[in-house]
């Protein structure tokens, strides 16, 4: 057993450092208290395209947004938003589904479009 640890000492050190660092950040992100989003910002390459007030949405509606490659459809309902249609090859953005909590985001790298959800009093917050 001792020989085993001695043989793989540096592997353990490297993997443990990277693993613990990423695990702690992931745990922080997963476990931090979630607050419902108030508004959502739709961006295309750092330019704000549209601000949606999620509290005021009565029924589901679809917004068309021009991406860098193709037009996209974004669906909004009360308290949640999602990318519902995109012509990107991977469709990761569509697969991600509804997002509703403050701080969450959905990205479509192919179209350069991303949606951020803001919490209370963070309407001007922008990454």
């Amino acid at each position: 057993m001792k020989a085993f640890f001695k043989k793989y000492l540096w592997d353990f050190i490297v993997l443990a450092l990277v693993g613990v660092a990423s695990l702690s950040v992931v745990l922080f992100m997963v476990l931090k208290p979630k607050t419902a989003g108030v508004s959502a910002g739709i961006f295309r390459q750092a330019t704000l395209v549209m601000n949606v007030d999620l509290t005021k949405e009565a029924e589901e509606r679809t917004i068309s947004v021009e991406g860098t490659h193709s037009p996209m459809e974004i669906t909004v309902k009360k308290g949640a938003i999602r990318i519902s249609h995109s012509d990107c090859p991977s469709h990761y953005c569509v697969d991600q589904g509804w997002i509703s909590n403050a701080g969450e985001r959905v990205d479509c790298v192919y179209n350069g479009v991303y949606i951020l959800i803001y919490g209370q009093g963070k309407e001007d917050f922008k990454i």
């Binding site: 993997l15 990277v18 693993g19 660092a21 990423s22 695990l23 950040v25 992931v26 992100m29 961006f43 390459q45 750092a46 985001r105 990205d107 790298v109 350069g112 991303y114 951020l116 990454i127």
Partner: peptide, 26 residues
Amino acid sequence: AVIYMETAGVFYYLPFLVLISICTGI
């Protein structure tokens, strides 16, 4: 992705990806 999207916010996914990368990489 960060360069193209012009936002550092994409780093949001990095911790999750790193954690899973370590497992699959091993």
